[in-house]
Amino acid sequence: MKRQNLKEILTFYFLLAITILGINGCTIQYVAEYDESIKNEIIRISAEIDKFYGILLETAEAARTYINFKDEYLTIEVDLRTLLTRNKIRPLNEESVKQTEIVLDLWLNDKEQHKTNDSVSDFIIKQHRNQFQRIFIAMAIGEEVKEE
């Protein structure tokens, strides 16, 4: 077999191998697959927390006792833990997992502060409402950019 023929045959098989890999969808993946239901859940919990602070703000300061809001704290905590579990079971999703852990940590901090002080000031409500809004926007953008 001539050297030129051998070179052409090797080139042909090299190109064929790359084509087969390409056709079979052999793509590189650094981030988790986009999940629309997760994005919707982020927006839903964000609205739930926003409503919680809205009600808290509308309540007279003397009536903002922890016991009056205990159930809402628990409901939202469960929602956040569920979101954390859903994020944890997705491969290549470390950043979203960390973000959800931060939200949960802040929520538990809020709950403890409310329990200790048995009230919350207008300033803290507005500040925390804004903090959660910022993180949920970041999380929603983070989910959206995973979409090809």
Binding site: I28, Q29, Y30, V31, E95, S96, K98, Q99, I102, V103, D105, L106, Q131, R134, I135, A138, M139, I141, G142, V145, K146, E148
Partner: peptide
């Protein structure tokens, strides 16, 4: 913690860009 959570989105963005 809020700042960290926001910056983590930049990390997702850069990974998604490299992937694309």
């Amino acid at each position: 913690e809020v700042l960290e959570a926001e910056i983590l989105t930049i990390s997702i963005m850069t990974k998604a860009i490299a992937q694309k």
